[in-house]
Design a binder for these strands. Structure first.
Lengths: 205, 205
DNA sequence: GTCTATAGCCGGATAGAC
DNA sequence: GTCTATCCGGCTATAGAC
């Protein structure tokens, strides 16, 4: 009976463990996004996730390990998003435009906290954090996806064009964030979309 | 004689004081740029400036006050730079292109630490720092200068175009920083310049 | 697996001698 | 004005009971 109780407790704890782990990552993900990595403490995360501080170290040895988990989580989310776009649009061009449109979906978040990939990369690069390459890989995932769509369209300048699209998008999100300007985000993203449209049509722009 | 000594000491101290103050600001400016504001401690600055920690509080009551001094210092440097451009080129278009060319001047710094205005704004916005508007004003200074050049050329879309130029430049510096990619900076900045050239010529681009 | 208590460190900031 | 010594608080991380 003692074993039974222990077992069911353990099983439940195992389930809870995975659940807890995910809760921690999700809470950290959000807080790292909102406040930045350095500015977020374990106390902040503990409070947000409803998990006691000391319990973190069962799941993550260090704060860096937690960051690693968060970045991988973001990559999964990103890939899921791109996969959704792949499935909901057959036309690569429609996919691309849907992505650019979608970047304005989380409008308020972007204005308040910037781009989840760009701001994280910037912070980690500046502080010389070992995880900066991993954050960079988030940008790389999206750049490669854009390039893939462009190549499917038949552009032989797909890599360069993808880089420019990413560059311009990042510029827009950075300035919208810096100025806290909602209209800037919407208007400049529209400009980017029109520019992409014109390029793909072979029109002057 | 005691008064005299005190006076000369005071005068010398005043001179030293101003010198020390400037040394502190210059050192902080550099470190805030290289490591970021939050990641830079007084100890770091003290070491770099050759001034004992405790002495800081004679010049700056808080770290925020020091940040304020650094931002104002950056604005002064920026205005000096723009004034130099004004004087070395009569043609507003030449001024503008000189600025865009000059952004690549500190190539290595930009690749390693990003744009001094953009990265600071991003960090302060994200952490919700009270000084974020002051950092934003740095971007505003440069945006207004660009708009002034465009207006002098006779563009009636000067404000919008200035914003777009700034947006694209920030995108380039962000990505070059995130990727640590020197070539990206040079190539994409060249693209921006060609685009500006084409727009000002009224050519398709 | 869970959680409490706390160690150990380093940050910004202060007091006060000189 | 200059500098030393130190406080206090929050941080990451650990030890160990349950």
């Amino acid at each position: 009976m003692a074993e039974q109780a222990a077992k069911s407790l353990s099983a439940e704890a195992g389930g809870r463990g995975a659940e807890n782990r995910e809760r921690i990552v999700a809470a950290a993900d959000r807080l790292f996004y909102e406040k930045g990595f350095q500015a977020t403490s374990f106390s902040d995360i503990a409070e947000a996730a409803g998990v006691p501080k000391g319990n973190f170290y069962y799941y993550f040895k260090t704060k860096d390990a937690l960051l690693e988990g968060v970045i991988d989580w973001r990559r999964q989310c990103l890939k899921k998003l791109l996969e959704t776009l792949n499935q909901s649009h057959d036309d690569p061009r429609a996919r691309l435009m849907a992505l650019l449109q979608g970047l304005c979906a989380g409008e308020d978040d972007i204005v308040r906290y910037g781009c989840p990939m760009g701001t994280l990369s910037a912070e980690l690069c500046k502080s010389g954090h070992e995880m900066k390459e991993r954050a960079q890989s988030l940008l790389e995932v999206i750049r490669e996806w854009i390039a893939a769509q462009l190549q499917a369209i038949g552009r032989d300048d797909a890599p360069e064009l993808a880089r420019e699209i990413l560059t311009r998008s990042q510029g827009v999100t950075l300035l919208a964030h810096a100025y806290g300007d909602h209209a800037l985000l919407v208007e400049e993203m529209a400009r980017v979309r029109h520019w992409v449209d014109a390029v793909l049509d072979g029109r002057p722009h």
